[in-house]
Each structure stands twice: as structure tokens, then as C-alpha cells.
């Protein structure tokens, strides 16, 4: 059986099922790393932009995209990792930001806000919404996360770094 050629929208829908391996509530679409989808004849080419240049999850994401397309009957697929569109945390969709908060991560504030990194001092606690918080470490368990402490609810939390 030959599967009919899907539309670009359909491919985006499929990719909603592929999650960031480090933050499994976030799809690659919501993460904003899919910067182009092309269909040429039967060949599907996906452009993936890295969140962080050293992100070890890139290769995993790449192979999961290929797997997903295969499961949908697309055997001729290519994923190109490219810096053509440099990723920014502003690419995370509203849906994605909501998912992050539910998962216990403070979503990144708009990148446009932070000309200086001083803004990072006032992250909003994902549990109690207090801004009485303090950055403990710009670096966290993965490259895209920072560690904070909330003085209000006395809990540590992580923020997805604005970039």
C-alpha cells in the first residue's frame, strides 16, 4: 500500500507526538525547534534548529522524528540540523509554556526583556507565582535549565533559560 502524500500541517500534527527527551511534556513543535518542513515528491525534509549548540538531545530528537515519520509510512525522510534560524526561547509556544509550568518549570520570560541578565533574578515561582525568588545557579541539570529558590514557598525550582 502506498500512503498518500501528507500535507505539511499533517506532518506538524505528527510531530506533536515527538517529545523533548529531557522535558517529556514538551513536543518538538511546542519547543519551537522545527524550523522548516518540506515535501518534495515523496521525500520529507525537516529542518531542526538546536536549542543549545551542545544539547546532547539533538541526535535523539533527530532519530525520533525519523521513526515517527516511518510509523506513518514515510520512508524517505531527512532531518537536517541547521543554525539557519537561531533558536530562541521565545519560539516556545503558549501551549508549551503552560505545559512547562504544569510540569514544575518556570517558563522562560520573553527574550526581548532581557537585554541584561539581571531580569533573571526575578523568576516567577511555578508553584506559588511569587517573584520573591533568587537565582542559585545559572546552570542546572541540563543546558537549558537554571536553578532558583523561592523565598515564599521555600522550594527550589528550575526555570527554562531565556535565550
Amino acid at each position: 500500500m502506498i500512503a498518500p502524500t501528507p500535507s505539511i500541517d499533517t506532518i506538524y500534527e505528527w510531530l506533536e507526538d515527538v517529545k523533548d527527551p529531557e522535558i517529556p511534556v514538551l513536543s518538538l513543535v511546542d519547543l519551537g525547534v522545527i524550523t522548516n518542513v518540506e515535501i518534495n515528491d515523496k521525500k520529507v525534509t525537516i529542518e531542526l534548529t538546536p536549542t543549545f549548540a551542545g544539547c546532547p538531545a539533538m541526535e535523539v530528537m533527530k532519530s525520533e522524528v525519523i521513526e515517527k515519520l516511518k510509523s506513518k509510512g514515510i520512508n524517505d525522510a531527512a532531518v537536517n540540523i541547521s543554525f539557519r534560524v537561531p533558536w530562541s526561547s521565545d519560539f516556545i509556544t503558549e501551549k508549551g509554556k503552560k505545559a512547562l509550568k504544569q510540569y514544575g518549570f518556570a517558563p522562560p520570560p520573553s527574550n526581548k526583556l532581557f537585554v541584561d541578565l539581571e531580569i533573571l533574578e526575578n523568576a516567577i515561582c511555578p508553584r506559588c507565582d511569587s517573584t520573591n525568588t533568587e537565582m542559585k545557579n545559572a546552570f542546572g541539570p541540563t543546558l537549558c535549565r537554571s536553578i532558583y529558590y523561592c523565598h515564599q514557598c521555600k522550594e527550589a525550582f528550575e526555570q527554562f533559560k531565556p535565550l
Binding site: F52, A53, G54, P56, A138, F139, G140, L143
Partner: peptide, 12 residues
């Protein structure tokens, strides 16, 4: 953690 993360960034 900081130096390890910067290491990972730099190798990237």
C-alpha cells in the same frame, strides 16, 4: 555543575 555545563556548551 557550572563548569560542567560550560564544558558541554563549549564542546557544542
Amino acid at each position: 555543575i557550572a563548569f560542567s555545563s560550560m564544558a558541554q556548551d563549549k564542546v557544542g
